[in-house]
């Protein structure tokens, strides 16, 4: 639609980098290298018994890797604010699902009456 640009806010990019100035090739290699390091760390962590911290540590590493993939490989770091809103709200919804489901599973032993 020809008039669609009338209603578009061109200033809503995150930071000062317009969308077409994306990360350099170096940045991709750095992120790739970091992901490899974290992968090694995942394997290493699986060989150490940290008791209750086994799962939190594995999840922390996985989340870090996922964030790196989302930010750089999926170009979100250079995306408009609207993309950020969409991504953050999606995770918020996932959070709602987890928190409320666990409000059942983790409290079955509560004897509140």
């Amino acid at each position: 639609m020809a008039q669609s640009h009338h209603t578009t806010d061109h200033s809503d990019h995150v930071g000062h980098a317009p969308a077409h100035h994306e990360a350099s090739l170096t940045a991709y290699f750095v992120v790739f290298f970091a992901l490899m390091v974290f992968t090694v760390l995942t394997v290493a962590a699986s060989r150490v018994n940290l008791g209750v911290w086994n799962t939190p540590l594995a999840l922390a590493i996985a989340v870090t890797k996922a964030v790196m993939v989302i930010l750089w490989f999926m170009h979100v770091i250079h995306s408009p604010r609207m993309t950020w809103i969409v991504i953050i709200s999606s995770f918020l919804w996932l959070g709602v699902m987890f928190v409320l489901i666990f409000s059942d599973y983790l409290t079955r032993a509560f004897n509140i009456f």
């Binding site: 919804w93 709602v96 409320l100 409000s103 059942d104 409290t107 079955r108 509560f110 509140i112 009456f113």
Partner: peptide, 22 residues
């Protein structure tokens, strides 16, 4: 609308605490 779904499950065996929350 996303925060209320377990009211369909009050007698299905969810925890009493969770039923109260929902």
């Amino acid at each position: 609308g996303f925060l209320v779904w377990a009211h369909h499950m009050f007698v299905a065996g969810i925890s009493v605490y969770s039923a109260l929350v929902f």
